Simulated scan of single mutants.
Amino acid sequence: MPFDADVYLKALDHRGPAAPTLDTLRALHHRHLITFPYDSALNAGRGTALWAGVDIDRDAAFDEIVVGGRGGNCYELNGLFRILLAELGFDVGIFSAGIRQMDGSFGPDLEHLFNHARVDGGLYLVDVGFVGPSYLEPLRVSGEVQSQHGSRFRVVPADGYHVVERSGRSGVWQAVYRFRDRPRDLAEWQVPSAELEAFARTLAGAGILVRGRSFATGQRVLIGKRLLTVDDGHETVRVLTDPAEHERVVAEILRTRAEDAR
């Protein structure tokens, strides 16, 4: 089915105004994270060509994700959302980020593709393609602390970057990812990059699938068999050792039947 903004809004169960305001952006952003899951299984087998499809076919992606109900990766989910926002009249563009790794370092600058929007004189980060835990609503690029559903966020400068930091109920601040305040062009991902290829080989070698989807007050992130739940700022981690439970959780996140999620 070709891209259709009205069908998109219906899929998001958005019943309010669609004017390009901050309230609309907040509502759509949260609903998108609740409705469409992130699924890294879609990258399996792509090897070092993880970003080859970054310039999405809008109609094909719309038909498969919005109409068909499958999950998506960062550039698919954020790409579709960027098209929707542009059609609604928002001033939107592309940013890229390096995500904080387990050892505290950051991935390559082009590792993650997300969006930004300028609304009412403010610059907001718009990201519906990051598995989390992260912001559920647009985040203003500002050092001020911004509270969302029990978690706090801020955007702080560091070494020429802006770093998105998050704090849950524990009060400990931790980086989510870093980005440069410079609009990106999709063509940048098409230029051969030894850094990106090496990073892609690392991801492929790990072989760990990551799935995630949000709910009204938080997020569920399944990394392999490790389930992280953030609810109203409270974090819990559980390892799913029972294969049947693992299948059930995958199915719940991806909104599929358990047998389809294997």
Rank of each mutant, 00 (worst) to 15 (best):
62 F>I: 09
206 A>L: 14
7 V>T: 14
152 R>Y: 04
158 A>S: 14
68 G>S: 08
33 L>M: 13
32 H>A: 05
165 E>Q: 12
249 V>A: 09
23 D>N: 13
173 W>G: 10
126 V>Y: 05
34 I>Q: 14
42 L>G: 10
67 V>M: 14
116 H>I: 02
85 L>G: 01
208 I>S: 07
147 S>D: 13
40 S>C: 14
235 E>H: 08
181 D>L: 09
182 R>Q: 15
231 D>R: 02
98 G>W: 02
116 H>L: 02
239 V>Y: 15
237 V>P: 00
112 H>C: 03
261 A>S: 13
128 V>R: 15
209 L>R: 09
134 S>F: 11
10 K>C: 08
62 F>P: 05
129 G>W: 00
89 G>H: 01
121 G>V: 01
160 G>D: 04
51 W>C: 07
168 G>K: 03
187 A>F: 13
78 N>H: 00
116 H>E: 10
160 G>A: 05
96 S>V: 03
22 L>M: 02
90 F>W: 06
193 S>W: 00
188 E>L: 08
130 F>Y: 15
125 L>Q: 07
96 S>G: 04
255 R>T: 13
251 A>I: 08
115 N>E: 00
167 S>V: 09
167 S>L: 06
38 Y>W: 04
216 A>Y: 08
204 A>N: 14
201 R>Q: 15
136 L>F: 15
155 V>P: 00
95 F>E: 09
93 G>R: 06
146 Q>D: 03
200 A>K: 08
250 V>D: 13
110 L>E: 02
13 D>A: 13
70 R>S: 02
239 V>G: 08
138 P>C: 00
200 A>G: 05
79 G>P: 03
135 Y>W: 05
6 D>I: 08
124 Y>D: 01
25 L>E: 00
230 V>H: 11
96 S>P: 01
111 E>I: 03
150 G>K: 02
54 V>A: 15
146 Q>R: 12
177 Y>I: 02
6 D>F: 02
235 E>F: 11
173 W>I: 12
86 A>R: 08
175 A>C: 11
47 G>L: 04
147 S>G: 10
192 P>S: 03
133 P>V: 11
255 R>Y: 06
183 P>K: 02
13 D>F: 07
63 D>K: 10
68 G>P: 06
125 L>R: 09
160 G>Y: 13
61 A>K: 10
47 G>A: 07
212 G>E: 01
197 E>S: 14
186 L>Y: 12
224 G>C: 01
172 V>N: 14
230 V>M: 15
57 D>Y: 05
110 L>V: 01
169 R>V: 12
44 A>M: 04
60 A>K: 10
189 W>R: 06
2 P>E: 00
158 A>E: 15
63 D>H: 12
22 L>G: 08
218 G>T: 01
90 F>K: 01
171 G>T: 06
21 T>P: 09
97 A>I: 02
244 A>H: 09
41 A>T: 10
159 D>P: 05
187 A>R: 07
73 N>L: 13
101 Q>M: 07
189 W>I: 00
211 R>E: 12
251 A>T: 04
221 V>Y: 07
37 P>I: 05
207 G>S: 06
239 V>E: 14
216 A>H: 12
247 E>F: 07
191 V>H: 10
171 G>F: 05
214 S>H: 15
39 D>F: 06
208 I>H: 06
254 L>E: 09
99 I>N: 06
8 Y>S: 07
215 F>S: 00
198 A>I: 04
14 H>A: 02
8 Y>C: 08
48 T>D: 11
144 E>N: 10
18 A>W: 14
56 I>T: 04
59 D>R: 05
